[in-house]
Design a protein around this nucleic acid. Structure first.
Lengths: 179, 179
DNA sequence: ACCTGAACACCGTTCAAGT
DNA sequence: ACCTGAACACCGTTCAAGT
């Protein structure tokens, strides 16, 4: 049941190496380079991550987990719209979107068949609770498609970010959501 | 001044071949395959299009030109907001965005240094006129960043399109723009 | 001037042989 | 059960030789 110790160590080394290589090369990072930096054979990389998307999912997992926790913390807030806004701004700023990963995030949110989809399922469910509360309180329009909203925010262009990573356009979107 | 006839013929064949190869393979289409289908050597492809982005710019040119013309037609409309809406919906539906090209379009709009930027300059200027008129008439908020708006619409996710190619989320954005 | 395609380098992917 | 790295295929890119 528990993986062999060396297998676990290799997997961790691969994710750590992928983090670095991704930071240098962006979303089309070289697979071979990841294996090299992790100090394992190419075959080992393919054994652990059958496709590039599975490796990307592993890279994003901890960030998605953070956002899921935040959503669960906010769900009992007395001001549902503030909760929605707070969470969306953090989601928007998350470095997970940088350098070409936003497409993977967008696909994970929209496509159940995507390799990233199970990694972000918890986060998605968490925000859906916040959005439902804001619909019930009448703060946002009831016809807003929540998964679609997440996909749009995930794919806001990088070029127009502020220094802190946030997207100015999110204000326009929030204005459009209001009832 | 005018290019040699064979050079012009090769260039046309390359763009036509790129159109087909792109339709099959998406934005990461094979350069070699384009040269093959065009019936020219690889060196000829590189001579005409130094980078992938220049070839993509050539693919998009005629679509951008259509949109520029549409903007110029709409600029004298009596209802500036209708003009903005009409144009944005056509821009949103344009097949130029499909299959990974949206990132190139977004970069062309946002980055003056991008290879695509000069291809879309006319279209961008055309829409800016429509947007300015809608600001002056008080239909949309005066603090809307127009190039940023275009980039956002250009990167709306493909997964949630309707059958006709339009993005349901555009309605939310239009609502957010209104004064 | 422009075109061609051989040549080089690098990478993705598989898999037989090892531990 | 897992790991390794040689081996294969394919592609991006350059450039000397051709027209």
């Amino acid at each position: 049941m528990t993986p062999r110790a060396d297998a676990q160590r290799n997997r961790d080394a691969l994710v750590a190496a992928a983090d670095e290589v991704f930071a240098e090369q962006g979303a089309n990072f070289s697979f071979e380079e990841v294996a090299r930096q992790a100090g394992v054979g190419k075959g080992t990389l393919y054994r652990h991550f059958a496709t590039r998307e599975y490796l990307i999912a592993a890279l994003l997992q901890s960030r998605f987990d953070d956002l899921e926790r935040e959503a669960l913390d906010l769900v009992d807030s007395e001001r549902p719209m503030v909760a929605v806004e707070t969470w969306l701004r953090d989601f928007d700023r998350y470095p997970a979107r940088s350098r070409g990963l936003s497409m993977s995030v967008g696909e994970g949110l929209a496509d159940a068949s995507s390799a990233v989809s199970s990694a972000c399922a918890g986060m998605k469910a968490g925000f859906e609770q916040l959005a439902t509360r804001a619909k019930e309180s009448g703060d946002i329009r009831s016809d807003v498609d929540v998964p679609q909203l997440l996909s749009v925010v995930a794919s806001l262009p990088e070029k127009y970010r502020r220094e802190d990573g946030s997207s100015p356009f999110l204000d326009t979107i929030l204005a459009g959501l209001r009832a």
